[in-house]
Design a protein around this nucleic acid. Structure first.
Lengths: 202, 202, 202, 202
DNA sequence: GATGAATGAGGGTTCATTCAT
DNA sequence: TATGAATGAACCCTCATTCAT
């Protein structure tokens, strides 16, 4: 039994801090202090502060892919899968919002690091492909209306990004309400019975 | 005729750079260099780098309010007004996206500056109030379906924030397409004829 | 009637601020602000911040000489003159202590400005010469014991400098008490009746 | 054997420079250069330039207290102890005069740092208490005239401060002569035989 | 006389990074 | 593995000083 996996500890801590503040604001000392170790130790495990960011992003993207795959394996009803995906965003809020924040921050200050750029792009592409795949399957099975699956996927995921931003900026933003509104909108467009989840009659 | 309004020049430049990169990454020297002046001059016009940020945010928010007011005065058809508001986001993309980025960045690194915090909150509140007002008017005039105007306003503006984020993160994101999708979705929910509006490829 | 003599105003203000803080700490802006004028104006009247210091020191020394001369003209009884000199230090405390402080500060940071150096030296020499002269006169008139007038002068003036320092450093230092103690000591050594001089509590 | 105690090295160097010039004039770079190290290293050992001053003052005051204690332990004859104390000022001139200068400078520019203020006050209080104690003992043992020990202590220490000032300001000031004059004056007032140290006949 | 605007030099401080141990 | 000590580069900011008006 390993006492601790230092490498991963650094990744996790870096992720947390980079998302909470941002790359430029978080110092190597901050990260080390969070773990109760010496700042110089970062350079034993990583080449750079930037390399640490790179590794952290790759780490979180890899984990997200696992999430996506798990989702696709467990469920088979397309409508259910979409609902799960949305729930996932509410439940795993902090993880996802971290990624969005870091991605945004990266674009702001690191134009040039192609590896990171590629990883981020890959994540977004994969997310959209998955959503698109699910929708297409629903359409083909005649469960959904015939709509452009790519655009719908884009729509969903754009809105979710908006949620992530607002939950950072607006202290009174209600993530679950917003996501529920999204679900209703999507389901309506897909031609599904919008299950009357309590509120607003009609 | 003044040759230049230095104060405003600083505001504009700061806005541009802070949005493009972020507060921590942009140096006072960068801002000065952009204007071809000495960095010390910043301190002649502003107390601080932070004070400059504050002034810049106030400046852009004030300008946005003017936009909002103009919009409400020019139009009278609620549906038309909503469409205009969306168009506004496509046309004035850079200004709006700057504000969102700066707001997000601010939240990351400046927890504590109440003045800035308040300005940002005020902007978002005002935006939502205006959208809500327009929708309510449409509902009351029986032009729109009877829906919760506040939630719809929130929905719209959350999606637009999502657009702003993605246009930064994803190089192949098509803002106009996304906004058009939003328009169709909204109009459907409001019970309006979705006119096909031949949109330009962009 | 001149509304104001700017030159002298600068001198006076500089003196006050340089003594209160010190040359390095007081900015040209501080001085200008004290007078409610623009900092650049200093350079109309003086070549330099240092030139202003120089002029200010010369100014205060000249004024001190006037004091000394006046003292010597008014009185003729040596014992009375010494007492007056001491009283003078209690009454004109702020002026004298300013000079000592500035002189000390000057030595700390301006080694090199010979003009200032000379002015300060001249002041101290003059002060000692005057005291010495008075004492010698008292001795020659057989009013005082036969003592070394130069050393006594040095003794008095050293103690007075000590008073100045302590009144700055020690908030509970009682200048008048200390000076009275000095007077008694001197008079004893001179062989004078130490009149009890009911001094006020301060 | 440690090669060097950096912390103490900084303290010593700072003390020397702050006394020679003053807090505002001495740069962190100066201090570092004196030790042949990088200026940033100062911040490894001290929080601040001000914290360095604080530590330096505390250091020198602590050392002075040791001096005082040693003095009181070694001697037992009150008259001898006073003489030793005076000699101490002549011999350890540079250390003491440093403290006075720094204390004076501090008062000029750092109003607000309570810790430093307290340390300085403590030093002066302690010094006076010790002198007072010695004198009282002499009076009680009927070795000295019956005089106010507190005032005599104050008198001595004020004069010594005056010496310190003059030795800075006046290049031709003879510290040992001034201190000897003080000794004679004190001893006379205490009713001691003034050992005829050469000059002034009678 | 007097000012607003502008600058260059430099100071305090932070921070990523290195290196010997 | 891990640390303490050290450094160089860069940043924010201040300030004396200048100059056109």
């Amino acid at each position: 039994m390993k006492r601790h996996d230092r490498h991963e500890e650094f990744l996790l801590t870096a992720l947390e801090l980079f998302a909470e503040r941002n790359f430029a604001t978080v110092t190597v000392k901050d990260i080390a202090q969070s773990l109760g170790v010496n700042p110089a130790l970062v350079y034993y495990y990583f080449e750079n502060k930037t390399a640490l960011l790179r590794a952290a992003i790759e780490f979180i993207v890899a984990k997200s892919f696992e999430n996506i795959e798990a989702l696709e394996k467990e469920n088979c009803d397309p409508a259910q899968m979409i609902a799960s995906w949305l729930d996932n965003h509410v439940k795993n809020y902090s993880e996802i919002h971290r990624f969005v924040k870091i991605a945004l921050d990266f674009k702001s200050a690191h134009e040039g690091d192609d590896a990171i750029e590629a990883t981020i792009a890959r994540f977004y592409a994969e997310e959209r492909k998955m959503l698109s795949r699910i929708i297409r399957r629903g359409v083909e099975a005649r469960l959904f209306n015939r709509i452009d699956s790519d655009r719908m996927a884009q729509f969903i995921s754009t809105f979710l990004d908006g949620c992530m931003v607002r939950s950072v900026i607006l202290s009174n933003f209600k993530l679950s309400v917003a996501v529920e509104d999204l679900r209703r909108t999507i389901f309506e467009q897909l031609g599904l019975q919008v299950r009357p989840k309590a509120h607003n009659g009609a």
